[in-house]
Design a protein around this nucleic acid. Structure first.
Length: 118
DNA sequence: GTCGTGACTCGAT
DNA sequence: AATCGAGCCACGA
């Protein structure tokens, strides 16, 4: 029985959480990190999503930053624009400032679906 | 091996 | 409201 020096499951747990975000809702990077037992490691979530194929079944577009904005970066080569149109397609509205109303659209996972601590 | 960078976040100025 | 600094950690140069 070997111990994995590098937990392959680190990113897997992130993807597992992202998969649970329902249609028409969004989650923040920090929120996903928390749910994946990675408190304070929001950057890791961004990094994990960077590796996701754009055509993947993982709903990567439902993850935005804590300010309700789509995180833009030249490194995304336009994937950020696609993210916006996908969210609009799901009925999510953007303010004139290109922000999402988190009070309205933030995903609130049910507590009894997993054993989580608050 | 070190160093800088980044799809982040939070609290303090 | 805007900016700053620190904490975070995988990755590439």
């Amino acid at each position: 029985m070997k111990i994995e020096p590098t937990p392959v499951s680190t990113y897997s747990s992130i993807y597992q959480i992202v998969r649970q975000i329902p249609h028409g809702k969004v989650a923040t990077y920090g929120q996903v990190a928390d749910l994946a037992s990675l408190y304070g490691k929001a950057r890791l979530v961004g990094y994990a999503l960077y590796r996701v194929d754009i055509l993947s079944d993982i709903p990567w577009h439902r993850v935005i930053n804590a300010q309700g904005e789509i995180s833009q970066s030249p490194a995304r080569y336009g994937a950020d624009a696609l993210q916006r149109s996908r969210l609009e397609q799901e009925g999510i509205e953007f303010s004139p400032e290109e922000k999402v109303n988190l009070r309205k659209y933030l995903w609130r996972p049910s507590l009894n679906s997993e054993d989580r601590e608050i």
